[in-house]
Design a protein around this nucleic acid. Structure first.
Lengths: 238, 238
DNA sequence: GAAATAGTGTCTCTCAGACAGTATTTC
DNA sequence: GAAATACTGTCTGAGAGACACTATTTC
């Protein structure tokens, strides 16, 4: 493809909004950039798409490089694409942002372009200091995650393979920043077809009555959806 | 940006899924390609992003070129990005697809790269003959539109500035391919805060009692959402 | 036993769906 | 008047929210 007036050359990257729930905080994986531009600043993990690589594969590769994850753990989806001229001082760079939801993992590994990588609670991120337009991307990713918990079973992506209803409730409470009635939540989750399936075993050794263990179910959409309290979803007018 | 192993050059395009409701059919704007590749095949309108142009501006420019629209009519949003290697024989081309919803318009204008442009009912498009991966993009766009009618007031983007409840109902029925009870629909639309606001005038000259005219309201999300009948949203398991 | 957590049952209110009935126009 | 479309009212059933109550564990 010739770089001409109508066919200007672009670089294409993938950036990742990797979210997890740890210590009752919705947290995002950030790396400290070891190379310019924005050297020393915190940024979303990401990198250039290779010459013969699908976008989704590039995102999965970057995720594996940063977290060590290989298998089908958690959830990875395309978020949105950001390509304003000037968003990267190196030239015209379009980034296809992806959203990953993962269970709580060991401390992440620093990649090749990063000094260090760490989980930061999303409401404590200094968004005004993030590299590039990553503050915007992070905000969009968090909003997408919050919305998708309502009508998909993606909350289970934040959980280990087997989990209790209380663990799942903690995910909702943490991501949404709300409190949910444990009794109504239990009835809702177990009564929504395909959301979770009982393993048949229970936890042991905790305080209180042991809880049934569940795995994620087969549904890809929840009907009826989980409803977010106090902020009844779309009341953004007036 | 040097084209190297890690920084391979890409071309970036925008493609448009432009939908409208006309003659009780959900229809998409397609162009017949006048230049290779896929010369003579039907395709989504689109084109290369210019060197100093935002992605959204490129989409708006292409939309204006194809439809003649300039002002803030209808709705335009980013859909998703498609970038598999080999999706375009000219080289590595990533396309940022956008979704546009418009009221019924006069016959479209052919652009510079197209012999002709026309509205085709989406369920009569020969998807196996569309250029590139446009069948997939079209399917994703239609699905996005169907889903968004549920929880946003975007159905109004298919209507002229002033419309009746029956016109709005026809949009839902056409896009969803279902029948809705006119009485319950009326109660729901007028009772959902911010969905529509009454103009104060009524239609004249039709058969039957004149209908109140409405404009779109201020809400960006509908609460409670419109519910799609017979396919209760997420019952895709079992 | 007390404390803690898991899980069930019951009441009420809201709202979607069904559909009778009324209002206002054209023919 | 009949036919057509616009709109209102009423009933019923499903489900969300509130919360009393029972069950099973650790201490």
């Amino acid at each position: 493809m010739d770089p001409q007036a109508d066919y200007p050359p672009f670089a294409v990257t993938v950036d990742l909004v990797v979210l997890t729930v740890r210590a009752d905080q919705l947290s995002v994986l950030l790396v400290r950039r070891a190379i310019p531009p924005h050297r020393g600043a915190w940024a979303l993990p990401g990198g250039f798409v290779h010459a013969d690589e699908k976008l989704a594969d590039a995102a999965a590769r970057e995720l594996a490089e940063e977290t060590g994850l290989t298998g089908p753990v958690g959830h990875l989806e395309q978020l949105a694409t950001y390509g304003d001229p000037g968003r990267d001082p190196r030239g015209r760079v379009v980034t296809v942002a992806h959203l990953a939801l993962l269970p709580d993992l060991p401390t992440p590994v620093a990649g090749t372009d990063a000094d260090s990588a760490e989980w930061q609670p999303v409401d404590r991120v200094r968004t005004d200091r993030l590299a590039f337009d990553h503050a915007r991307i992070l905000a969009d990713g968090v909003e997408r995650a919050r919305a998708k918990l309502e009508y998909t079973p993606l909350a289970t992506a934040f959980c280990p393979p087997e989990f209790t209803v209380a663990q799942l409730r903690t995910v909702y409470e943490t991501v949404w920043g709300t409190r949910l009635d444990p009794r109504n939540f239990h009835r809702k989750v177990t009564g929504t077809p395909g959301f979770v399936t009982a393993v048949g075993r229970a936890t042991e050794g905790d305080r209180g009555r042991p809880a049934q263990l569940f795995r994620r179910g087969l549904a890809t959409l929840l009907y009826p959806p989980m409803l977010r309290p106090t902020t009844p979803h779309g009341r953004d007018l007036r």
